[in-house]
Design a protein around this nucleic acid. Structure first.
Lengths: 102, 102
DNA sequence: AATACATATGATCATATGTTCATATGTTAT
DNA sequence: ATAACATATGAACATATGATCATATGTATT
């Protein structure tokens, strides 16, 4: 096929999909999203469960918020985070299933 | 949920899925895999179509080969690469479709 | 065997990424 | 208002990553 005849992806699309996959590709964020796909969590709870510093969790949540992959609600001093993109969770779970079944 | 009660992902699974998503997350590799999902290509053809150096393409193909995401056949001096993991292509196409339709 | 062509590979370098540390912000209770 | 708690944020640092350059390998042709 000639270059000119090719079905190209829009740069915008490539960039956006790249950001989503980068978000999923980091082990910390993957575990974090997987955890949030199971239950709504406070920042401290995430830190405890995943054995990470509060700061590390908060930085990662900031990145995931910017991509609108997570949302939160406040209850007193505590913020409860949850997933905000079912499609991305679906991609993650498909990849996990596939990997687990070789 | 208590930490001990949690459905954890195996480290092995996390690592493997991370490698797959990392492969998909780089714009160059994403375009490369998308191209190969449409047609079998020689290394030089990929380089021309994607406007990359032969070396850059070869390095990326090496990474994709190690992950068994691509395979190749030889015809004389030329190597023809193609996709070797339909499931990963499916993940990529889902992400692209979702991104294109907002 | 010598040359040309297609591809692969190692080293180097600049940039991106994730963590930590210190500190700031926001909320509640006293 | 102050103290205590929960979370966020900026700077600094170490590691990972992707491109390039130079060169090596493998194949076909003469």
């Amino acid at each position: 096929m000639d270059k000119k005849d090719h079905a190209f992806l829009a740069d915008e699309t490539v960039e956006h999909v790249s950001l989503i996959f980068k978000a999923l590709a980091d082990p910390t964020r993957m575990k974090l999203l997987y955890l949030l796909s199971q239950e709504e969590c406070s920042v401290n709870h995430i830190a405890e469960v995943l054995e990470l510093s509060q700061s590390a969790v908060s930085h990662q949540l900031s990145l995931l918020r910017n991509l609108r992959l997570v949302k939160y609600r406040r209850e007193g001093k505590t913020l409860f985070y949850s997933c905000d993109d079912e499609h991305v969770i679906s991609l993650l779970k498909q990849a996990i299933d596939h990997s687990e079944h070789h």
